[in-house]
Amino acid sequence: MHELSLVAAVCDEALRVLAREGASRVLSIRLLLGVLSCADRDALALCFPLAVRDTPLEGARLEVEAEPLLLHCNECGSDSKSWDALLVCAVCQSGAVEVRGGRDLVIASMEVQ
């Protein structure tokens, strides 16, 4: 359970963006949660209100969107998506695939005012 560390890192970045943009508050933060990101959506949602309390981020909405694995097959050349964490090409079932997305937890965007 390292989601509090992750949420703290999200808050650090959101505060930096707030200062850089000269905005006064954050309305929402959108995260992309990759299948292989090692993070749990519910735990993120649980930690967020605790992390933002008494900070300029208080009241911001956290949106978490799941992101599938993006696989590129080195055998048949096709790109496919996978919602489970198996590294198998959806087209030819080869295991010779590269992961091109869905590995990380990413701050996709923010809405500021």
């Binding site: 890192a9 990380d104 809405e111």
Partner: peptide, 13 residues
């Protein structure tokens, strides 16, 4: 003030 959308695409870690 109007709200603004900011694209980031930055890994949390």
């Amino acid at each position: 003030a109007p709200s603004r959308h900011i694209e980031l695409g930055r890994a949390v870690l």
